[in-house]
């Protein structure tokens, strides 16, 4: 992480700056705790949840289910939040999740140009690059160059659709199922579903290929 244009790296490059931020966080948490506005034990629990419970594995299971169950897939594309919550197979997620399907004719990509909106209840916390200026600025005007940064090439005649998450709707991409996976179980298929394939900066891993 050496590119000084990468806005989110700044703090990690300067030890003194980092410790100053750390001190400010500690001071604010102390004051808010002493005044009874927050409880550090609750913060511990929230941090633990985001570090250990949520992550792309949740979305990967949803995608794998959609690949093997056409009725689930149709329902997911109709209303993703309702479908996931009513299936009973996944943790409860928040409102207004929208799943968009990649097809041979259309590749979908998700961004929040204004801040960092991200479907964290199915994908976990967003990676630094998703929240960074290079991605937020460029994907809406030149998505193929963004894909090139990820080493991904999409055929020139495939439509590219960029979904800018400008409201409290949240988008996840339903990637195309890799060929050569007939008869695979949901658990096996879920292993092929990468985080980036559900944002649209990647495609699902091929069988046998490293993710």
């Amino acid at each position: 992480m050496s590119d000084h244009h990468h806005d989110d790296d700044h703090d990690h490059e300067h030890g003194s700056h980092l410790s100053e931020v750390q001190l400010r966080v500690r001071a604010l948490e102390t004051i808010l705790t002493e005044k009874g506005y927050i409880d550090p034990a609750v913060l511990d629990q929230i941090v633990e949840h985001f570090e250990t419970k949520v992550g792309p594995h949740v979305g990967a299971r949803v995608v794998a289910r959609a690949w093997v169950d056409p009725a689930f897939k149709a329902s997911l594309l109709e209303d993703a939040t309702r479908t996931i919550n009513e299936s009973g197979a996944f943790e409860t997620i928040g409102d207004h999740l929208i799943a968009v399907e990649n097809t041979p004719g259309q590749h979908n990509m998700v961004v929040c140009t204004l801040c960092s909106c991200y479907p964290w209840d199915v994908l976990g916390l967003p990676p630094v690059w998703y929240k960074s200026a290079p991605y937020r600025s460029r994907v809406v005007i030149d998505p193929r160059s963004v894909l090139a940064d990820f080493g991904v090439t999409i055929p020139a005649d495939t439509r590219i659709r960029v979904w800018d998450s400008t409201a409290e709707t949240r988008y996840m991409v339903l990637p195309q199922r890799p060929v050569g996976t007939d008869g695979w179980s949901e658990a096996q298929l879920a292993e092929l579903v990468t985080r980036d394939s559900m944002i649209g900066t990647g495609v699902a891993a091929q069988p046998g290929a490293p993710k």
């Binding site: 590119d3 244009h5 990690h12 966080v25 941090v47 992550g55 916390l125 990676p127 630094v128 290079p134």
Partner: peptide, 27 residues
């Protein structure tokens, strides 16, 4: 704004204080 630089095996937080800030925001 330059090139996008994905980080492999990226952790949820890059420093302990980042998690505290997320918790403070929610609280």
């Amino acid at each position: 704004f330059g090139k996008i630089e994905p980080e492999s095996d990226e952790p949820p937080f890059h420093a302990e204080w980042e998690g505290r800030v997320l918790g403070l925001v929610r609280g």
